[in-house]
Design a protein around this nucleic acid. Sequence first.
RNA 1: GGCGCGGUGGCAGAGUGGUCAUGCAGCGGACUGCAACUCCGUUAACGCCGGUUCGAUUCCGACCCGCGCCUCCA
Length: 463
Amino acid sequence: MIQIHNTLSQRKEEFRPLEPGKVRMYVCGMTVYDYCHLGHARVLTAFDVITRYLRHRNYDVTYIRNITDIDDKILQRAEANGEDYLALTDRMIKAMHEDEARLGILPPTKEPRATAYIDEIIAMIHILISKGFAYPADNGDVYFAVDGFEGYGKLSKKKLEDLIAGARVGVSEAKRSPADFALWKAAKAGEVSWPSPWGDGRPGWHIECSAMSTCCLGDTFDIHGGGPDLLFPHHENEIAQSEAATGKPFVNVWMHAGAVRVNKEKMSKSLGNFFTIREILEKYPAEVVRYFLVSSHYRSQVDYSEENLEEAGRTLTRLYTALRGIVPDKKPSVEIAGDADQQFHAAMDDDFNTPGALTVLHALASDINVFRREGRDREASEAAAVMVSLGKVLGILQQDPEAYFKAGNVGDLTAETIESLIAARNKARKERNFAEADRIRDELADNGVVLDDSRDGTSWRRG
RNA sequence: GGCGCGGUGGCAGAGUGGUCAUGCAGCGGACUGCAACUCCGUUAACGCCGGUUCGAUUCCGACCCGCGCCUCCA
C-alpha cells in the first residue's frame, strides 16, 4: 500500500487511483522564458522518481507535464531580446529538454503547450461565464469571480476575507472583487493575440492548466503536482476554475515539492543567487546533482551549497566504488534481492521516502564489499545487480562505473597521459624507487587524479 | 498581520513511545612500501519548559527560534 501526503488534507493518505492499476498525473511545468533553474530541477526530479516508482510498482502511469509558452514574462523577455516570442520559447524548450536529459529526467507521457489549447481554454471560459462563475469586464479581460465558488481557499487554507483585506493597492478597477483573477487578458496594441468572443487576447495563467489537465486526463484525476510556490494562487485557482466548470472534484491528491535554498538563503534573482541547471552542471556531474536532490525527501527544503554537493559526490563515489569491476548478475537470488526489495518498497511506499530507499543501496554496497573481500564473487555480483536495478528507480547508478570515475571535468590530463604516468609509477614501484613513485602519484593528485592500487593493478578516478 | 511547515550527533538526513537509521567527516585497528579503496571497531543527537505514561526525541500544551506562501516565481 502506497501512502502519499496530500496537501489538501495535510496528511498522508492511502493512495487509491480512480481506476485500479492506472495513475493519471499532471504536473505544472515550465514557463519558457529563461533557462531552468535548480527549483525546476527539484520538481522535475521529484516527479520523475515518483513516476518511476509507480511504474516499478506496475502502475500504468499517464504523466502530463505542461509547457507555458505564452505569458507576460515571455513577451517581455522576447521584447528585451529583440526576438520573436516563438523563437524565444523554441530555444528555451530545447534547452529544457537538454537539461532534463542530462539529469536523467524521463520525458512525460505528453507535454501539452498552452498555445495548442486555445480553443479548449476558450470553451472552458465560455462555460464558466454561462454558469455565472466568470464575467467579461469593460476592459476586455474576463475574470473569475472568486466569491461565487464556495470552496475557494480549501487547498491553501486561506479565507477569502483575509485575501481581500490583504490585497495590495492598485487592484484593477475592472475586477468586481480584488481576489478575482483573469481568465482571459485583452491584448494591447501590437501584442500577439488570439480571437475570442470577448475580443482579441490571450489566456490567463491559471486557466491553461485547468484546460490542459482536464482535456488530457479527464474532469477528475489522481495526482496534481508542482512547486511549493504554486500552491497559492495557481493551484487554488485551478481548483476553482475546474470544479466550477465541471461540477466534479478536480484532483484527488495534491503534491508539492519543497523549496530550494542557496547557502541557507532563499534562491532569488534579487539576491543574485539564482542558479540555472546548466550553470550547476558546469561545476558538478549531473548524477551528483541528482543524487543530492534525491538524498532528501521531496517535501523538505533543500539547501544548495558547495559543501552539500561535494558530500553528495563523495557518497555517490562510494556507491560506484562498490560496483566497480563487477559484472552484475542478471538473476539475483531471492535471498539477495528479497530483503533489499522489501526495505526499498517499505521506504518508497511511505510517501516516496527516497533517503530511506538510499539506505538500502548503501547496505547493498557494504554487502558487496564484504562479499568481495571474502571471495564470494557470485553473491557480490547478485547484490550489484539488485543495487543497479533499485538505483534505476531513483534514476541513479546507471552508468558504467569506469565511465563515471573517468568522466569528470576535474584536471586536464588526458586518459592516455594518466595511464602512461601510472605505468611509469608502477615501474618505479617494482624497482622499489618509492620516491619516484610517490612523486608521480603527487603529480597526478595535483591534477585531480586519485590512484587505487590493488592486486589486479592500479585503477584511477578523477576526484 | 493571516495561513502553513520545521527545529535530530561536527555536517547532511530518515525515523520511532522502551536494543541500530544511513551517509560524509573524526578517532582506533587491519590491509598497503607509504597511500587510496575496503573491512572491523568507535565517539556523538533529538530547541526550551511543563503534562500524559512504568517509560518520551517520538503524544499533548505553552514558549523560543528558523523557513515558506499571502505579488511574477518550481
